[in-house]
């Protein structure tokens, strides 16, 4: 995780007045010459560094994304089921006017926000304990304990919740003596499972955020007479806010596009992902699926733009 703010390091290219590396004992003549050629040419070095990653991301990802957006304005031939290049706004209009999409969007947003809030509420005390209360040994142990479930397969965890939530599962068995019962497969199950899945992703950035708060600051605050809560609200919270936002991006974005969890523990619950999935698969209507996917893309871009100013993107 980063320690220095992005604005701190100056332009500092690799030594502006670098002498010709003739005295260097390492490297062959060719690399020496290339190095000597590149040393004073900042732009060329930058281009050398950026070309491969930008080309990859641009060609693979941005072109694909752009093509998808364009496809939203095409149609499907009703007879052959093939995508036709026939421009229409029908799909997009349908997605933005029909009640089904509005309902599902609101439901998905609600689920994603609820999952994010639950995860933050659980992650903050745990991360605080890990970073500021636990000793070094215990802290290392806790980091491993939090990270380990990340490596257990996503599907396995959803599957575990399917077993937990089932009508003869652990939750029913534990709750029935107290007159309770399992929430079963539905929205509650989806929220519980998604919160469970993304919790480690939310704990880790927040833990790193707390870790970056120097103990000296907390001591200074205490010396100046601030009580624990006051220190937390006035000193710690402003410093870890970007970390909380960074954690929320994971929980929010991952929930927003999910359809597999919904399929396994959601019963008949539909989310945006479900609609996209059925239109690509069963309905074989890629243009409509592309039009629907404009909703989560729009929501995420708005979310990213809103949080960008907090610097959270850099502490992901």
């Amino acid at each position: 995780m980063r320690i220095v703010p992005a604005s701190a390091p100056g332009p500092a290219p690799l030594g502006p007045g670098a002498p010709i590396p003739a005295s260097s004992r390492e490297g062959s003549m060719t690399t020496q010459r290339l190095s000597a050629y590149l040393a004073p040419r900042r732009r060329l070095r930058l281009a050398g560094l950026l070309t491969a990653p930008v080309l990859w991301l641009g060609l693979v990802y941005i072109v694909a994304l752009a093509a998808l957006l364009v496809t939203a304005f095409w149609t499907v031939n009703e007879l052959t089921g093939q995508v036709q290049i026939e421009w229409t706004t029908e799909n997009v209009v349908e997605v933005f006017t029909e009640a089904l999409y509005r309902t599902v969007t609101l439901r998905t947003l609600g689920i994603a926000l609820l999952v994010t809030l639950i995860d933050i509420a659980v992650a903050v005390p745990v991360a605080f304990f890990m970073a500021k209360v636990a000793g070094t040994r215990l802290r290392h142990l806790l980091v491993v304990a939090v990270l380990a479930p990340l490596w257990a397969s996503y599907l396995v965890k959803v599957y575990a919740w399917r077993a937990l939530l089932s009508s003869d599962g652990l939750i029913e068995w534990a709750a029935s003596p107290f007159g309770g019962s399992t929430p079963g497969y539905g929205i509650v199950g989806v929220v519980l499972t998604l919160s469970y899945l993304w919790l480690p992703y939310v704990i880790m950035p927040i833990y790193a955020g707390f870790d970056r708060v120097p103990d000296r600051l907390l001591e200074a605050s205490a010396d100046l007479g601030a009580k624990g809560w006051r220190t937390l609200v006035s000193v710690v919270l402003p410093m870890i806010w970007p970390a909380i936002i960074a954690g929320s991006i994971f929980a929010f974005s991952l929930s927003l596009g999910d359809y597999i969890t919904t399929k396994i523990v959601g019963g008949a619950t539909q989310m945006i992902g479900t609609l996209v999935y059925t239109n690509v698969g069963a309905a074989n209507n890629l243009p409509l699926a592309a039009a629907i996917s404009l909703i989560p893309i729009g929501i995420i871009l708005i979310y990213l733009a809103a949080v960008r100013r907090t610097g959270a993107l850099r502490s992901l």
């Binding site: 991301l57 990802y61 941005i62 694909a64 996917s293 989560p296 995420i300």
Partner: peptide, 25 residues
């Protein structure tokens, strides 16, 4: 943003975008 985007956008969007790019494009 370009680097963050593939992980920030929902997997299903990335999935169908790449599927469409490979097969159609």
């Amino acid at each position: 943003l370009l680097i963050v985007l593939p992980i920030a956008l929902p997997g299903i969007v990335t999935g169908i975008a790449l599927n469409n790019a490979f097969r159609t494009l």
